[in-house]
């Protein structure tokens, strides 16, 4: 595992731009540390983008569907919450490794390699935060009066029409809450990422991995402290933003 922040492949251009724009702010952290912050945001963002749609569909199926294997699906979806993250990472390695049953064909046919890449880190994060989105969306769905969908039906709306004009808008607070929670949790995903995507600065070294590396290197306490502070600030901003958006959405939906 590459260990110290100093051994980074630099991204000169973006560093220069960032330094120019943000001045003092940017100098608060080193270029490598900024990389970690950017990577964390990118990985968490991508993980939400990847898992949102399937999570909404699975939540829909679990809340409204009556099909055999529903309980099993429910259990499988929730596994990442209870299984050690390292095990999830190991499972992904087995499946998506270059010789894995999914990773092999991906690599051979499309030249897509997930292990030890930013995309891989995003995939691991997505799997970990998937149950968070499903739970939140499902909660929103179960609080939604099915009578409204019935009413839409009697007014001539087919299933897709009903879903888009009634169900989706009314479940949007649940989707938003799920996405924000998943994003915030994704910023800090450690075990699955380090196991599946490893700890490569500038590639897969997200904030928590950078903090871990800093604590492992001599004299890294100050860097760890700065990064921890950034983590804290990001989490707080995320939570406040979610609250604000939630209220806005509530008003728009005619609830508040």
């Amino acid at each position: 595992m590459p260990n110290s922040i100093g051994a980074t492949a630099r991204r000169g251009d973006t560093d220069a731009e960032l330094t120019a724009i943000s001045g003092a702010w940017a100098r608060m952290l080193s270029a490598e540390e900024w990389d970690a912050v950017r990577l964390s945001l990118a990985v968490a963002g991508r993980s939400v983008l990847v898992s949102l749609l399937p999570a909404v569909l699975v939540a829909w199926a679990l809340a409204r569907g009556r099909f055999p294997g529903r309980m099993l699906l429910d259990a499988v979806v929730h596994l990442p919450l209870v299984v050690p993250p390292v095990v999830v990472g190991w499972g992904l390695l087995m499946l998506f490794g270059v010789r894995g049953p999914i990773g092999g064909p991906l690599n051979d046919w499309f030249g897509v390699r997930l292990v030890f890449t930013t995309e891989g880190a995003a995939l691991a994060t997505a799997v970990m935060s998937f149950p968070l989105i499903v739970r939140s969306v499902r909660l929103g769905l179960e609080g939604l009066d099915p009578g409204l969908e019935e009413a839409a039906r009697t007014l001539g709306a087919g299933w897709l029409d009903r879903f888009l004009t009634v169900t989706l808008p009314l479940m949007s607070p649940g989707i938003l809450a799920g996405a924000v929670t998943a994003f915030a949790a994704g910023l800090g995903e450690f075990g699955a990422v380090i196991t599946f995507a490893s700890n490569i600065p500038g590639e897969t070294q997200t904030l928590p991995l950078a903090i871990y590396s800093a604590t492992q290197s001599p004299g890294g306490e100050a860097a760890a402290g700065r990064l921890a502070l950034v983590s804290f600030a990001l989490a707080l901003t995320g939570l406040l933003l979610a609250e604000l958006l939630g209220r806005r959405l509530g008003r728009w939906l005619g609830r508040a």
Binding site: G147, L148, E150, A151, T154, L253, R255
Partner: peptide, 12 residues
């Protein structure tokens, strides 16, 4: 056209 006891207007 159905009129329900609880109106069932779309709140949004």
């Amino acid at each position: 056209g159905v009129v329900f006891q609880d109106a069932r207007l779309f709140p949004h």
